[in-house]
Design a protein around this nucleic acid. Sequence first.
DNA 1: CGATTAAACATTATATTTATTATTCAGTAA
DNA 2: TTACTGAATAATAAATATAATGTTTAATCG
Lengths: 202, 202
Amino acid sequence: MSPKMNVSDPTAEEIKSLILEKAIDRFVRYGFGKTTMVEIAKDCGMSAGNLYRYFESKFDIGVGVAQQYISQAEQILRDVLQRPGLSPIQRLEAFVLEKLKFMHSHIVEQPNVQDLVNYILDERWDLVERHRDVQNSLMSEILSEGNRSGEFKVADVDHTANTIYAMTTKFRLPHFIKNITIEELELEAKSVVDLMIQGLKG
Amino acid sequence: MSPKMNVSDPTAEEIKSLILEKAIDRFVRYGFGKTTMVEIAKDCGMSAGNLYRYFESKFDIGVGVAQQYISQAEQILRDVLQRPGLSPIQRLEAFVLEKLKFMHSHIVEQPNVQDLVNYILDERWDLVERHRDVQNSLMSEILSEGNRSGEFKVADVDHTANTIYAMTTKFRLPHFIKNITIEELELEAKSVVDLMIQGLKG
DNA sequence: CGATTAAACATTATATTTATTATTCAGTAA
DNA sequence: TTACTGAATAATAAATATAATGTTTAATCG
């Protein structure tokens, strides 16, 4: 392999990554609507027309950004599953709270990106569903862990994971995260987790 | 009291009711935005200017409609508490499902009114909070009933009522009610109620 | 020949004007 | 005085014209 390989001949994948990277820089600062294809192209040292060799549309670049955002969130949740020294109960709570914190920090620190992701996911329900499935399969692992340790008695872990997902909907919706303090939401989320563990029968 | 009393001298409250009634007729057919003050006034046999003796603004008429909508919902929920022959568990489930059905039927049958209510409540968070408080105090009654019968063991009924409210958020949001079939939502709501009763420990 | 550009074209957004509508208020009648 | 009207005004929305931007493609470069 010649030393020049990497600089002389970037792969299509590498160029796509570059475009995504430069696009995100713009989106963070100015938002999706206020960023033009010409600007992104200039930042990449190419023409606007050439962007279309790598992305079908501007919307498609937005999809790329949304996918990165989702991957980031999923990585954080996977990390919760690897975190040592947590009981299944603690892990379940951490799982819910980490997702809430992730969304909250993005909403306050990068509102433009958050708006973009919401806009994209509004038309790409399939991405939302895939993300939900990933979260549910991670939750299923937590529930199975709890079954093994005797802390939980869950008959159908997949079904229950989905039910937990429904129960915690409020803590994933930008609408509430924007209008309620993070402290209040965290307390409420903890109460919800407590109740789903204990049940009304105590 | 002379027989003429009612026809000759309508009270301000009666006139307000008339205005609200005629306004709703318009809102149902054409929506809030497409209904003019002149039209409402004409339907009431008065001038547009005179409407302002009874309502501060068109928005305020919308508030009146929203309050009627909320009262209607609360009446249905109060009826659930009076329904004979239900166990506390069944009552809790019925409570959640009836609210879901109420919203679903309005969304499909009177989308214009639903849109109006959403628009009003978006700026009148206080009405949402009051409605939440009413629902929570009704839920508290159900929980207390369950405590008395021995089916529940709820330490703090008010706090738990609020937690249940958070858990069932998804089933009160127009966004989900519009995008998911009512059958699916009802099944999911039942699962949520089941889980909140049983808990993960079985 | 593959990758790229720059101009052409189509679409979408912005600015501007126009028309409609909400709201106010001086005046009128009971 | 109280309830009301209808014209005047202020605010909002619709329509239009204009500009900006997304997308396509014929021509160019290496």
